[in-house]
């Protein structure tokens, strides 16, 4: 297996606060990697660094052998680094079909087209509809985004990201706040992604993490504490201390 993403000594300070400190980490192609850590550990900031929304204070990011540390966020998306947000970032004024079609069009560089009406871009619309259907959102396609249930909007969040055809998908707490009965949909969606998509999952629900992840990284106070298989992480004494008694035991297999 080859390395798809690597960060070397990646750090980010906000004033006096070191949100991410000296993280050196490599992600294998096709990985099913979880990134866990208490609130404020710097997980979201780490994603912001990877996607280029926030510039690093120090360190380097390499994607598919290319140094992308200084690349613009758009250029990174074009190379295949796509994220979802911890707090939904959707287009409230659009239908899900429009939102996903927009992502498809932007991906293909067709969103500059000015003269043909959107309705005549069948390829993009069909692809968007297919993608929505594959996530079980077929019936919500034309419903105003604001009227869809929270859990399904979390799915839409993932769907928009998938429309960009990610090589590396960064999921920031996709199931946070989603009621129990809708959680499975989200986890199944993530579990069913093809291996051509590498996944870095941030999640607090340990059930989901241990069900999904093949490797787990633990971030505490901005620093990478442990990285290893679920068993190694679950039995690591430092992790247990960091979580102060929260159970990290893998569910009985």
């Amino acid at each position: 297996m080859s390395v798809i993403l690597e960060t070397n000594g990646l750090s980010r300070r906000f004033g006096g606060l070191r949100a991410v400190g000296n993280v050196t980490f490599a992600l294998q192609d096709g990985a099913r990697q979880a990134l866990i850590g208490p609130n404020g550990a710097g997980k979201t900031t780490y994603i912001n660094l990877l996607t280029g929304v926030v510039p690093p204070s120090e360190g380097r990011i390499t994607f598919l052998g290319e140094d992308i540390t200084r690349l613009s966020p758009e250029a990174r998306v074009r190379r295949g680094i796509v994220r979802t947000f911890q707090i939904n970032q959707l287009f409230d004024e659009m239908t899900p079909l429009e939102a996903v079609a927009l992502a498809v069009l932007e991906r293909d560089g067709k969103a500059r087209a000015m003269w043909r009406p959107l309705a005549s871009h069948h390829e993009a619309l069909d692809e968007a509809a297919g993608l929505l259907a594959s996530l079980g959102l077929a019936d919500a396609m034309e419903v105003p985004t604001a009227e869809i249930s929270y859990g399904r909007r979390r799915l839409l969040e993932i769907c928009v990201a998938l429309a960009c055809r990610p090589r590396l998908l960064l999921l920031d707490e996709p199931a946070a706040g989603v009621p129990e009965h809708e959680r499975n949909d989200i986890m199944n969606t993530v579990a069913n992604l093809p291996r051509t998509v590498s996944v870095l999952l941030i999640e607090h629900d340990m059930d989901l993490v241990f069900r999904f992840a093949e490797r787990i990284a633990v971030l505490v106070g901005g620093e990478l504490l442990v990285e290893g298989t679920p068993d190694e992480v679950a039995n690591d004494i430092r992790v247990k201390e960091a979580y102060l008694g929260e159970s990290l035991d893998a569910p009985a297999a």
Binding site: E74, V77, V82, Q89, D92, A99, A101, L102, E106, A161
Partner: peptide
Amino acid sequence: LALRGVKGNPLRMRAIG
């Protein structure tokens, strides 16, 4: 549509490249 996207949520627009 892209303009509506930029107006509606520029953060997300950047995230879809």
